[in-house]
Design a protein around this nucleic acid. Structure first.
Length: 515
RNA sequence: GCGCCUCUAGCUCAAUUUGGCAGAGCAACGGACUCUUAAUCCGCAGGUUCUGGGUUCGAGUCCCAGGGGGCGCACCA
């Protein structure tokens, strides 16, 4: 045997066999009814004074996170997803009292009894009857410090959710945010749809795709990198307000802000332009923040943030000048723009055009200094192949990037509706690809044909849900808002700390913050 | 992909600047205890110091290679 069982594990396994695992399993109920959430127990009986008995019996269920046995009394902390309440067991009252005292930390139990407040003031369920619902054979980390090993926290998130305070609440909040976004869009008459994840051609954004193989078609397929093209085809099909909230996949590295699969919201509205869509972002961001946090005044990473609409609007070139002092105009031409860019320390590749240079200067010198909220307006055409030309500024397109807390949390567009123009943009992308741009967008003939049938004036948004949740929960790493973030392969397949044959751990609940 | 850091008991961490018997708290296990709150007290156990080589009388510690993890850069929402 590669890993001899630890003595503690042996002892524990022996103890379990003494309890006759089969008998225990047979005794576990198939369902519970009439349980009361611990949070409801607290809110209904929080007014009891020390030593007072409510006269009300409840059944609660959850995981035993702490156990304090004191002779003929025992106290356990029972946690469920609404909170926790103390179980108060007495040898004189509680059935199978010895068994109760031998519960392992981490075991699931249900307990029935009167709600009381103990003499020392702890709201408790005075246990008359109880059942084991599930035995925990592995631990939940140090009861005070929880679990800090990142490998354990993210690969075995079920441990993290119990062991580290705040983790579960963050994901409950994420769920509320997503529900709130759907609700806000519904109130404005948007219809939710689902479009293909597996695609023969990818498009709608700049990114390297994941490739997979469709066996019966003898053909490689791509995982979508954006939702855009299908949604716009639906506008052509008469869906005047449409959105999709779904996962997209980009073949990029991991970082505190990037996960290769992430949740994106895209919404398209007929007869709207990019100003309307910027307002939609303000509506969603402020509405969701108000809805889940109850306030528009946030603090993110110790810096204040006021989400109250309307937000400041400024053009990209105005912001570049404001932040770097560089005055740039597309009409200056490549040589002059290159000279000015390099004077600011921005390296310029040979094949870049005016738009790419200006955008690069913005990203290097200006964007890192923006905090926001601010709508960055009017990007050069060459970097936005699906966006409609600016109504009055040659060389620009109608695109707004809202920056909130220094992050791009969305994109807003007046969508390109002209099929001829769209073909020309795709041609330019093909040229970029020929120059080695791995993220250039391939021509999508189906999409262009749809435009030829007529796309009305349309506004669109793309919105990064994960980054928005990071903002609302004040975390700096995207892993903290993804239940199962992408990790390097390998270790998860090996026996982990809690997975060794016969491996054993304590069961407990820590309370130290994890982030 | 490149650079830097890191890996010790189930968990969280120690282990004399400069190599000398691998430790603590919690958990676990046995016991005491009728109002505990990270309960307390007594006792007992628990180790392939990530792996493989090397230097040395002697390596958790130094060197080499590999593996896991973290951070930074690059790429991006």
């Amino acid at each position: 045997m590669a890993h001899p069982p630890r003595a503690a594990a042996r002892v524990r396994a022996q103890r379990r066999s003494d309890r006759s695992p089969r008998a225990v399993t047979d005794a576990i109920p198939y369902r519970l009814e009439g349980t009361t959430a611990t949070g409801d127990v607290v809110s209904a009986h929080g007014g009891l004074s020390k030593g007072e008995e409510s006269g009300v019996a409840v059944t609660v269920a959850g995981r035993v996170m702490l156990l304090r046995v004191q002779g003929k009394l025992a106290f356990a902390e029972l946690r469920d997803w609404t909170g926790q309440v103390q179980l108060f067991a007495l040898a004189a009252l509680t059935e199978r009292f010895d068994g109760f005292c031998r519960l392992n930390l981490g075991d699931w139990v249900s307990a029935t009894g009167e709600v009381v407040r103990t003499r020392r003031g702890e709201l408790s369920v005075k246990v008359a009857a109880w059942s084991l619902l599930a035995a925990s054979r592995h631990g939940f980390g140090d009861k005070w410090r929880g679990v800090h090993d990142p490998d354990l926290r993210f690969r075995q998130r079920e441990v993290d959710l119990w062991a580290n305070e705040g983790v579960r609440d963050r994901f409950l909040l994420r769920s509320k945010v997503v529900r709130m976004i759907r609700d806000l869009l519904d109130r404005r008459g948007y219809v939710e749809v689902e479009t293909p994840v597996l695609q023969q051609l990818y498009g709608g954004g700049f990114a390297k795709p994941f490739v997979t193989h469709f066996n019966s078609m003898h053909s490689d397929f791509y995982l979508r990198i954006a939702l855009e093209l299908y949604l716009k085809r639906l506008v052509v099909g008469g869906f005047e307000r449409v959105f999709e909230l779904g996962r997209v996949f980009r073949n990029e590295g991991l970082s505190p802000k990037n996960n290769p699969e992430f949740t994106m919201l895209e919404a398209y509205q007929a007869y709207a332009d990019y100003f309307d869509m910027a307002e939609l972002i303000e509506y969603l961001v402020s509405g969701a923040a108000e809805g889940v946090l109850g306030s528009l005044q946030l603090s993110f990473q110790k810096k204040a943030l006021d989400l109250t609409p309307p937000w400041r609007k400024a053009t990209l070139l105005e912001l570049v000048e404001e932040q770097s002092g560089l005055v740039l105009e597309l009409s200056m031409g490549v040589p002059e723009l290159r000279r000015r860019a390099e004077s600011a320390g921005v390296e310029v590749d040979d094949y870049w055009d005016e738009g790419k240079i200006v955008t690069e200067v913005y990203e290097k010198t200006t964007e890192p200094n923006l905090w926001g909220p601010v709508h960055v307006m009017d990007y050069p055409e060459s970097v936005s192949p699906l966006t409609r030309k600016h109504r009055s500024k040659p060389g620009f397109v109608e695109r707004i990037t809202p920056i909130v807390a220094g992050r791009e949390i969305a994109e807003c567009y007046s969508e390109l509706v002209d099929p001829e123009d769209q073909r020309a943009r795709f041609a330019a992308q093909a040229e970029a690809a020929a120059h080695g741009d791995e993220e250039a967008m391939p021509l999508d003939e189906d999409f262009v044909r749809a435009l030829e049938r007529g796309l009305p004036p349309t506004g669109g948004i793309g919105f990064g849900v994960d980054r928005f949740v990071m903002l609302l929960t004040d975390v700096s790493h995207i892993r903290e808002v993804l239940l199962f973030p992408a990790l390097r392969p390998g270790a998860g397949r090996e026996p982990g700390a809690f997975d060794r044959p016969g491996g054993e751990g304590p069961a407990t609940g820590g309370s130290e913050r994890s982030s």
